[in-house]
Design a binder for these strands. Sequence first.
RNA 1: GGGCACGUAGCUCAGCGGGAGAGCACUACCUUGACAUGGUAGGGGUCACAGGUUCGAUCCCUGUCGUGCCCACCA
Length: 956
Amino acid sequence: MIEKHYQPSDIESRMSLIWEDSRAFSAGRPERRDARPFTIVIPPPNVTGSLHMGHALNNTLQDILCRFERMRGRDVLWQPGTDHAGIATQMVVERQLMERQQPSRREMGREKFLDRVWQWKAESGGIIINQLKRLGASCDWSRERFTMDEGLSRAVVKVFIELHRQGLIYKDKRLVNWDPNLLTAISDLEVQQIEVKGNLWYLRYPLEGKTFNPGDPSSFIVVATTRPETMLGDTAVAVHPDDERYAHLVGRHVVLPLVGRKIPIVADEYSDPEKGSGAVKVTPAHDFNDFEVGKRHNLAQISVFDKEARLLLTGNEDYLRGLPEGAAELAEELHGLDRFAARKWIVARLEDFGFLDRIEPNTHMVPHGDRSGVVIEPFLTDQWYVDAKTLAQPAIAAVRSGATTFVPKNWEKTYYEWMENIQPWCVSRQLWWGHQIPAWYGPDGKVFVAETEDEAVGNALGYYVEQEVITAEQGREMALDRNKRAGFITRDEDVLDTWFSSALWPFSTLGWPDQTPEVKRYYPTDVLVTGFDIIFFWVARMMMMGLHFMKEAPFSTVYIHALVRDEKGAKMSKSKGNVIDPLHLIDQYGADALRFTLAAMAAQGRDIKLAASRVEGYRNFATKLWNACRFAEMNNCALPPKFDPAGAKEVLNRWMAHETARATREVTEAIESYRFNDAAGAIYRFVWNIYCDWYLELAKPVLLGEEGEAKSETRAMVAFARDVILKLLHPFMPFLTEELWAVTAKRDGLLTLASWPRKAVALTPEQVALMAAASPNEPLLAPILMAADTSELSDPAAEAEIGWVVDLVTAIRSVRAEMNIPPATLTSLVLSAASAETQARVPRWSDVIKRLARLNDISFTDRPPEGSVQLLIRGEVASLPLKGVIDLSAEKIRLDKELAKADSDIKRVDAKLANEKFVANAPEEIVEEEKEKREAAVARKAKISDAIERLRNAAS
RNA sequence: GGGCACGUAGCUCAGCGGGAGAGCACUACCUUGACAUGGUAGGGGUCACAGGUUCGAUCCCUGUCGUGCCCACCA
C-alpha cells in the first residue's frame, strides 16, 4: 500500500539502507561479469569539508549517468573518495588550535601536529561521505579511497621517483609565488590577480660621476615603479635599446639612492619606452620580469626580504656586499620592517633627499594568495618542479585527436590555450600535511630520491664511498647500524601540492602501481564530470599523468558543468561565506526534488542561479507522481505477465503506448548527449501533461466501468506506463521511484538494477541493413535496433483521435470559463454535420467528454441550433445550445475575434506566397506547409462566418 | 591587453533560421470519487539596441551598450 502522503525524509533514509544492504552499487557484480564496464571517478571532495551546492550538482549529474548506465546493463564503477586538501586542511586545524588557545603548529612540532590533523580527519572525514549518500550518490562505497591512504601514497612516491628518474621532476632555484602568511610556495594557479588602486612612484637615480641636483635632469635618470621598497634590491636600470633618450646612458652607472650601491644602466627590450619614464629599475630577486632581465645581463640577485616579507638586511651579505660606509647603519635601522612599512619609510626618505620625482595614481593588478588573501611576494627559493611542458604534449594531442572530448566543446579551446602556454609546475609546498617528498640530502646537499629512507641511505652510502667522502668500512658500518648513520642524510621537509596526488586519482584509486584486475577493467574511465574552475588544477594534470603512466587518456569524455552561483550570481566560496546549504533544501523538499531541480537547470554552458521556489515546484512534481501511483493502485492496475503494449486494442491505450515510446526515446537520447535539462523536461512533461492530465483522466470511465477486456487492458497499460515512468525517472529521483517500485507491485528486484526501457527507434528494415553494413564490426547493432524498433507503437490514427478529444474538451472548457458558466451547470453538446469518423468516435468517448467538459448530453444534428455557442473543432462545428444563458453580443464579439485571427493568418500566408522569391527559394516542404496553413485558415474562416451568420439569424 | 559566456514574461531560466516556452509569482473560478504539495481557464514578452546576410532572423554575422567569468609579468 502506498502511504497517503509523500514524505521524502522517511523514504530517503529507508532506501539508503536498502541499497547499502543489497550492495546494489558494487562494481563487478557477478551477473555483470560479461557486461561492458562504465567508470566514473568522483572529483574527491576535501576530506574535512561539507557538501555545498557545487558538490550537489556535480554528484547529481554523475549519479544520473551512473544509474542510467547501470540500468542499461553496464558494470558500473563509480569510484568514491576524498582528498587530503593540503593547505585547506592544515589551515583549518591551525585555526582550531588558535581558537582553543592550544600550542601552535610550530610549538607542537611536525609529528604531534600531524597526529592532530589525522585526528581531525577521523572526526570529520565521514561527514561529506554521509552527505553524498543523503544526496543519493550511487558510488561503490566499499571502494572508498583517500589521497593519503597507504595505496595512494605508494602511487605518489612511485610517480615522483619515475618522473625524477626521467628528468621530468627537478629541483631549481628560481622565483616562486611566495605566500608570506602561509610561509609556503604556491603554484601560479593559486594566485589571484586582484585590481588594486595604488601609485606609480617616479624615482630619481643619480648618475655616477655627476653631482646630484634635483633641479638638473642631466644629473639623474627617472625610473617608475609600483614597488619602491624593492629598490633596496635593485641591481640595474634597464632602458630599451632603441630608446634614443637614453642611448647615451647605456653602459654607465647610477648610484642607488639611500643605499649607495653602484648599478649599471643596461639596454633590454623588456623596457617599454611607452611605460612610465621609459627606464625601469631591475630587481631580479623580487620580480618575475626582472629575474629574466637579470639572467640576460648577469645581474646579481639580491633578496631583501625574509619569508614573512620583512626586510632582511642585517647580516645579509648579498645586500651588504660592496656598499659604501654607513650603509650598514641604514640596514640596522630598516631591518625587520614589514614590506608595507618599508615602502612608506623609503618613499618618505627619498622625498626628503629630493629623489622622489613625482607620484601618479595607478590602478594595477596585484597577485594575492587565493587561500590566505595576502599579497604574494616573488621570492627566490629552491623548489621542486614538474616539467609540465613535456607532459603536456601528449595531453594536447589526446584532445586534438578526439581520444578525449570536452562537452560542451568550447572548453577545448580553454584547455589548449593553457596547455600550450604551460609553465613549470611548482609542486613543493612548505607545509606539513601532505605527501612528504621522497628525497633525502647528503652531507654535501646532494639529492637522493628513493622510495624509502633505507633505500636512500643505501644509495647515499654507495655514492659517498665511491666519492671517497667516507671509507668503504665506514659505509658498511653505517649501513648496518642505524645509530651510526643517524643524521647522515636528512629528508626533504616539504610536501607535495595536493593536486599532485589528485592527478593520479583515475588510476591510483584502482590499485596502481599494482597491476590489479580493477586497473585492467576500469581504466580508462568513461566520463569525468566537473566544473570548469578546475580544468587547469585537475583535468589537465590527470590528462598529463594518465597519459604518461598509463599510456591512455584517463577518460574519453570530460563533461564540464556550470557553476552554481549565489542569488547575486557570485561564485560561491567558503571564504566569501555566501554558500547555500544543499542539505537545508534536502531537509525541506527532499533529495529527489533538489536533484531534479539541478538536473532541470543544468543546461550546457550556463551557470545556475538557484531559486528555492524551483525546488518546491519539483517537490510538487514528486507528489503528483506519488498520487498518480496511488490512483493506479486503487484501481488495481497491475502489469500482467507478458503484456505487450504494442498489441493494445483500445485507442486510448495505443495512444499511451505511443507516447510512452516517445518519452523513452526523448529521455534516453537527452541523457546520452548530456542534455540533462532536456531529459528532465521530457520526463516532467510526460508524467504531468500526458500521463496525469490526459491518460489517467481519459481512462477513468473505463477503470470505473464494467469488467471486461477493455478494462483489463487499460489496467495493464496504466501499470506499464507507470513502470516506464519509474524507470525513466529513477536516475533523477532515485528514492521516490525506488519506493514506488517496491510498493506498487511484487518485484523481483530493485528498480536501480532493473533494465532501462528500450529506446524506441523507428527504423525501416532498409535503414537497419544500411547501418549494419556501415559497421560490420558491431554485430549487435542491427539486432538491437530491430528489437528496439517500436515504430509499431507509433500510431497516427490513435494520436488523431485522442487529439480530437483533447481539443474538444479544451475548447468547451475555455468557452465555458469565458461565458462564466458555473462548473455545476451542465450543458449539452450538439455536433453538426459530423463526419462518419466523428460519429464513430463519440460513443467511445462520450463518458469522458461529458465528465471532463461538464456535459449532460451529446447529440447530432445537420445544422447548429440557434442561439448557441459554436466551436470549431478540427474542421467541424460543435455547439453548446445556451439560449437565454449566453450573451449573444458577447458571443458575437468572441466569434469576430476568431474571424479576425483567421483573416490575419490568411493575409500573412498570402504575403509569403505572393513573394516569388519565397516560393522560389524556400524548401518545398515549407512552401507546402504554408499552402496547407492557408487552406486550413480559409476553411476555418468560412465556418466562422457561417457561425456568425447563424448567430445573427438567431438574434433577429 | 587576450579569451569565453550572457542580456527572452514580474522573478529564475529553457528554446534557437519558418507563427514565442517552462517553473514560480499573478487573476478568476473549482473541497469533481489519485492529488488544494491539486484542478480548470486566463493575463503578461517590438526575444538589449543598431546594422548586415537571407525569400524569411529571437535564432547566423558585424558593431554598440550592459552584465559576469577566465587568462596575462608589463614598471
